[in-house]
């Protein structure tokens, strides 16, 4: 799959039609307000604010090292796991600040699931991979039914229904990533964060994941970090463009409906980036 090729992206990859009006009407589910992230003395993300509407796909794009993944990982407090990482500012999820003292990150992560860049299924059977998160979340229902429903939603059921007892790591990379999506769906989250979910995959697997995202959008809110601008243009309703300021801090340049951002960028830096003139 071509990644970040030169040339105007909006010509090569038409954006989805008739979405912007729809999404601007829906209420925001996640609101990032003046987010600042430090790794030790390094100020990685500076003053980022944007809204994520419910049941939409928001793409975070921008050059390497501009803090996209850091922002994403702040939303479900995964940055707590990194020593010396400090997150300031507000991230409102259903109007509740996830960084508030009384908020338990475990509760946040049960509602805000995450899919990683490198597929990371557990070294367990496909079935156990799906049931793992459900079980720790106190799932008491029909396990077989949950496994089938999650795998169907992740468009993986037909490929694995006869080998549910096999190790998840025996699957191909694309199947592993869909398994990771399936196990995230199985805990029935509200929001799904995806950190470059297709960057390690071949073009066909990538398209499958993108199709899947469009399916999932009806039920979930998706925020995706991607290096691939065509991907952002293809799947997302809203695009947030990050870049580095003169102090090498990750800053938000522009957040717009995807069709608008790729056709009429408001900022020169956005235009330079999407037309491949970023240097």
């Amino acid at each position: 799959m071509a990644t970040q090729t030169a040339g105007p992206v909006h010509v090569a990859a038409p954006t989805r039609s008739a979405r912007p009006t729809e999404f601007t009407q829906s209420e925001p589910i996640v609101q990032v307000r003046d987010l600042n992230v430090h790794y030790g003395a390094f100020h990685a993300v500076a003053g980022v604010s944007f809204d994520v509407p419910k049941n939409s796909i928001t793409a975070l794009i921008g050059p390497s090292g501009c803090g996209k993944s850091t922002v994403l990982r702040s939303i479900n407090r995964m940055n707590d796991l990194i020593p010396n990482c400090r997150v300031d500012g507000q991230i409102l999820y259903h109007q509740v600040d996830v960084n508030a003292r009384k908020v338990d990150p475990v509760e946040v992560r049960r509602r805000v699931g995450m899919v990683f860049q490198k597929p990371n299924p557990f070294p367990k059977s496909i079935r156990d991979n799906i049931l793992w998160g459900a079980k720790i979340n106190g799932f008491k229902g029909n396990a077989d039914e949950l496994v089938e429903r999650s795998l169907r939603q992740a468009a993986l059921w037909d490929e694995v229904k006869d080998k549910l007892k096999e190790n998840g790591l025996a699957l191909s990379g694309g199947q592993q990533q869909r398994l990771c999506i399936a196990r995230t769906i199985a805990i029935n989250p509200d929001v799904i964060l995806m950190d470059e979910p297709a960057s390690a995959l071949d073009p066909i697997s990538t398209l499958k994941i993108e199709d899947l995202m469009r399916e999932l959008e009806r039920q979930y809110t998706i925020i995706i970090v991607t290096h691939n601008m065509q991907q952002a243009a293809r799947v997302s309703d809203q695009t947030v463009f990050f870049s580095l300021n003169e102090k090498r801090q990750g800053v938000l340049i522009e957040a717009s409906p995807t069709a608008e951002l790729f056709t009429h960028p408001r900022d020169q830096r956005t235009e330079d980036y999407i037309t491949g003139r970023f240097g």
């Binding site: 475990v106 992560r109 699931g113 990371n120 557990f122 070294p123 998160g133 720790i136 196990r183």
Partner: peptide, 23 residues
């Protein structure tokens, strides 16, 4: 990455330790 997979599904430290790392 395996630990993060566990944490991202709302597992506690104990659950990640005993059900991901230990096995």
């Amino acid at each position: 990455s395996l630990r993060e997979g566990g944490y991202a599904m709302g597992a506690t430290k104990l659950e990640v330790s005993t059900r991901v790392v230990l096995p």
